[in-house]
Amino acid sequence: MNETYRAFAEFAQTWGLLYFVGIFACVLVYALSPKRRQEFEHAARLPLSED
């Protein structure tokens, strides 16, 4: 059983790391996309608006 746990833990650590690196890369692409620039600039100015 110890060997099974160790194999599962190694699998989870390796693929979990790759999964989170992939998610992080997707978030960066989304946040730094030139198409989103105007949307984020508008959202950044919302607290300063008088309405």
Rank of each mutant, 00 (worst) to 15 (best):
R6L: 05
R6Y: 01
A7K: 01
A7H: 01
A7G: 02
A7N: 02
A9Q: 10
A9W: 02
E10T: 14
F11C: 05
F11P: 01
A12P: 03
A12T: 05
T14S: 13
T14I: 12
T14C: 09
W15Y: 15
W15H: 14
W15F: 14
G16K: 01
G16N: 03
G16A: 05
L17A: 14
L18Q: 15
F20P: 06
V21A: 10
V21Q: 07
G22C: 03
G22N: 04
I23V: 15
I23F: 05
I23E: 10
I23D: 08
A25S: 00
A25L: 01
C26G: 15
V29I: 07
Y30L: 07
Y30F: 07
A31E: 06
L32P: 01
S33E: 04
S33L: 06
S33G: 10
S33H: 15
S33K: 04
P34M: 00
R36N: 15
R37P: 00
R37I: 02
F40A: 14
F40S: 11
E41K: 03
E41R: 04
E41V: 05
H42V: 15
A43W: 06
A43I: 10
A44L: 13
R45I: 09
L46V: 09
L46T: 05
P47N: 00
S49L: 15
E50F: 13
